Simulated scan of single mutants.
Amino acid sequence: MASSHIPLTPFEYDAFLFDLDGTLLDTADDLGAALNAVLISEGMTPVAPEAYRKVASDGAGALLELGFKSHWATQPKTERIKQLIEYYSQNIATHTRCFKGIESLLIALDNQGIKWGIMTNKPGFLTDPLVAALPALKNAQVVVSGDTLSEAKPSPLPLLHCATQMGIDPTRCLYIGDAHRDIQAGKAAGMQTATALWGYIPSIDEAKSWEANFNWASPIDAFNHI
C-alpha cells in the first residue's frame, strides 16, 4: 500500500462509502407509494413517478410538500409525516432494488479487498430493515444512519465515524452520493467525492455545480477507480 503522504491517484482508495437512497438503492417507488397513500387518504391527487423521483432523496417533508402543493402550509405536518413513514415502514422493500450495476460493483470491491460501507441520513429504524432486505448489501463493513450520531449530513461527522469504524484514513475514502449534502459532507470529511448522476438529482447541470471530484453517469464508472 502506498504511504499516506503520497498524493492519491484515482486507483488508490482503501474504502468506498455510499449514500443509500438514490445511490445504492432505487427506493423512489416505495417512497412514492407511501406519499400517494397519504394523498389519496386526504382526497388529494396522487403524484406521478417522474415528479416524486426528483425529490426522493430529500425526505418525507419534501415529498409531502410536493404532493400537497399550496395546501402543505395548512396541513398538520407532523401528523402527515407520521402517516407517510408508517406506510413506508410497512412496505419498505416492495419495489426497491439496487440500481443497475451496483451489485456488480459491490462484488468487485469485495473481490479486491476494498472495504465499503453505507452512510445515509435515513433514520436507523428504516435503514436497518431496508439494508437487511437487500442481500446485495450484506457485506457492508459499516452502516451509519442519520440518527446514529448527534449530527447528520452535510456534517462530516458521520462520514468520519464510518472511516474510524472501518479503520481507514478518511483521505483514502471515496464517498458517492446523489445530493448536494453528500458532496458537502464528503469534502468536509477530507474524502474524495463522486456524484451519482443516476440518482435523484434535480438536474445534470445542478449536480455538476456541486463540484464533486467525479460525476458518474453509471455505477460502472466506478470500476475505473477500483
Rank of each mutant, 00 (worst) to 15 (best):
L174M: 13
Y52V: 14
K69G: 08
D128C: 02
V143Y: 02
G22R: 02
T74Y: 10
D205Q: 14
N215Q: 07
F68H: 05
L63R: 05
A194Y: 06
C162S: 10
H71Y: 01
E79F: 10
L130D: 00
L8I: 06
V55W: 05
I226Y: 01
S155C: 10
D169M: 02
W72K: 04
E86C: 10
D26R: 14
A34W: 05
A207P: 13
G67R: 09
A152K: 15
V55A: 06
P202G: 12
T148D: 00
L20A: 02
Q184C: 06
N91S: 08
D26Q: 04
I201G: 11
Y200Q: 08
M1E: 12
R53N: 01
L35G: 08
I81G: 02
S57F: 07
N215E: 05
P49E: 00
D30E: 01
C173L: 11
P7M: 11
K77W: 03
W72V: 14
D58V: 07
D147P: 13
C98P: 14
V144T: 12
K187M: 11
N215R: 01
A207S: 12
P123Q: 04
D19H: 09
K69M: 05
P76M: 03
G43S: 07
C162F: 07
E79P: 01
A56D: 05
A51S: 08
A34V: 04
T96P: 12
M119Y: 12
P76C: 04
S4A: 10
P158Y: 03
P219H: 04
E42F: 11
Q184M: 15
A194F: 10
N111S: 14
A37Q: 10
V144G: 00
L130V: 01
D182Y: 14
L31C: 07
T171S: 13
M191P: 10
C173E: 00
A60L: 01
D128E: 09
P76T: 07
D29S: 12
T78H: 11
P158C: 01
A132C: 07
E65L: 08
V47R: 03
I118D: 01
L126Y: 03
T45R: 08
D110P: 13
L149V: 09
D182M: 11
I168A: 06
A212M: 11
S104N: 08
A62L: 06
L8Y: 15
P49M: 05
N91M: 04
